[in-house]
Design a protein around this nucleic acid. Sequence first.
DNA 1: TTGTTAATGATAACAATATATCAATAGCAA
DNA 2: TTGCTATTGATATATTGTTATCATTAACAA
Lengths: 125, 125
Amino acid sequence: MERNTRQRDAILDVISGAGRPLSTQEILAAGKAAVPSLSIATVYRTLRDLVAEGHILPVKLPGEADRYEIARLDDHYHFKCSTCSKVFDIHDSIKKNNLHVPRNFVIDKYDLILYGRCSDCVPKH
Amino acid sequence: MERNTRQRDAILDVISGAGRPLSTQEILAAGKAAVPSLSIATVYRTLRDLVAEGHILPVKLPGEADRYEIARLDDHYHFKCSTCSKVFDIHDSIKKNNLHVPRNFVIDKYDLILYGRCSDCVPKH
DNA sequence: TTGTTAATGATAACAATATATCAATAGCAA
DNA sequence: TTGCTATTGATATATTGTTATCATTAACAA
């Protein structure tokens, strides 16, 4: 039978409260605030379970390890700051009929990833 | 001093003629048609050199190894067929002013990746 | 044609995640 | 509170993709 543990609660709280996708190391570091003994093995195990249960979703960027965010957010895409490496949700979408593909190709979904600098990392004038 | 080898020519020919980004294994397999002894080590070495020289570009998709295509193609993005796993170039672009980011965020570049089925993999009615 | 040495081929080593193992710990039903 | 056992923490192992090693091969200047 499944048990509620402080570790699992801490990990889900961290992801819920982040407002942006977090890396496993960010989750580990933030989770240790609630459970100092938290292990990276528990982070990976819990993330796997939470994904399987549909509570969270992996956010995949090219060449990078998965990040995680709460599932069932609105249609959105992601912005990665090339200075601080944080990834932000952009709550917007592009119109599918603006996307042109060859005849007989069928679009199921799309990923739009923006790269640049977030407000914290843009030099103030 | 740099030498022209059959292996290097074969690899560049394969990439030039593909019309879509190729994985290292696709390049190895196609290159063996010209040079049967071709080794995966030579493929990686040559790809690294060709990228450094600006002849080809890595195409990065989330959670996948780099593919490679000829550099200096027009502005375009990529379509991955989830059935045959091939990646196709889509020679189109989206208008940057259609992308909305939070105040003070600066966009340097973006990647748009479409997922679906290519014409070979869509069931004919 | 020959000699020099860059490039190759085969494979070991590496790097970066992610998973498996297992004794110790701690949820939770009774 | 106790006992059962799911879960944890620490770490070994696996996986995947790429680079390093080194004896052999072959490009090309002379």
